[in-house]
Amino acid sequence: MAELSYRDAVAYGIAQEMRRDPALVMLGEDIAAAGGVFKTTVGLVEEFGPDRVRDTPISEQAILGAAMGAAMTGIPVIAEIMFSDFLAVCWDMIANEIAKSRYMTNGQVSFPLVIRTANGGGARFGAQHSQSVENWAMMIPGLKVVAPSTPEDVVGLMAASIRDPDPVIFFEHKSLMAGKAEVPDGEIVDELGTARVVREGSDVTIAALALMVPRALEAADRLAENGISAEVIDVRSLVPLDTATLLSSTAKTGRFFTVEENPRLCGWGAELVSIISEEAFWNLDGPCVRITTPHIPLPSAASLEDLALPSVDRIVETVTRSVDGGGSA
């Protein structure tokens, strides 16, 4: 058991897999000698060499094209896109090429590749380096989408993503990088498509992702002080989606909330609420409520960004008001 930061867990998880599979390679901007702009790849080029940990030009289409071409010809690949906002630059590669080609070719090709990217706000970087875009990826058929919230999950879900034969978009949250937690010794391999109940409760279910998980947990502590027992679910994997865990929790509590960092419209929670409404409607004691970033580009100033992202206060207030019958946020 060692204490690892979320940031260090990224390189730790990748190293575990690169030691296991000598064919696995990695490419991206500033990932080799520089160790990544978020220092998530420190030490990898030293251990695995520049042929397996390759620096690239600022050419996001070329990065993902190379990843795709290598993956479809037998080389498993990890590609880094520095900020998730930059996925828009190479969205054709993701949405049209990587995601669709297996289906279009009736299964002739597959893509064992992971696209890692730093996602989310809280760093005061402004609208082009801060957005949570996991909902972009979630809506594309053919992509798997993962967003861990703890160092151990970074390692385990990284391994699961790398070993998965399909393309996975792996969102690492910028504002979780410095957080530390114990990580067990030995090989860690998790499973995609599994949500985790991170706090048990009986009155409300709160589904959260990435940075919103610790906020939901803190809110749950405060709600408990007010007599509301909240069950918190770390969704972890948007595709595949562990609906069984969400549905069974809601059946128990009768109340369902999401805490989402993505902008409001078509955020991932909208799909979850839709599933709960269709399949657990008769278990509900009140409306499903989404707590999200408003439908705006993220502002830069600390005070404004803090107002935009779902806060512990907002979660507590929204859940309390809803349980008291006061309607939604």
């Binding site: 289409q61 070329a62 993902l64 094209g65 190379a66 990843a67 795709m68 071409g69 290598a70 993956a71 479809m72 010809t73 037998g74 080389i75 690949v77 054709d92 590669m93 049209n96 090429e97 080609s101 070719t105 090709v109």
Partner: peptide
Amino acid sequence: MGSYAIIGAHLCIANGAAWSA
């Protein structure tokens, strides 16, 4: 290895196959 209908992408993908080789 495929016929790609969005202009430009497959040049990058061909690079990947060449890199793999």
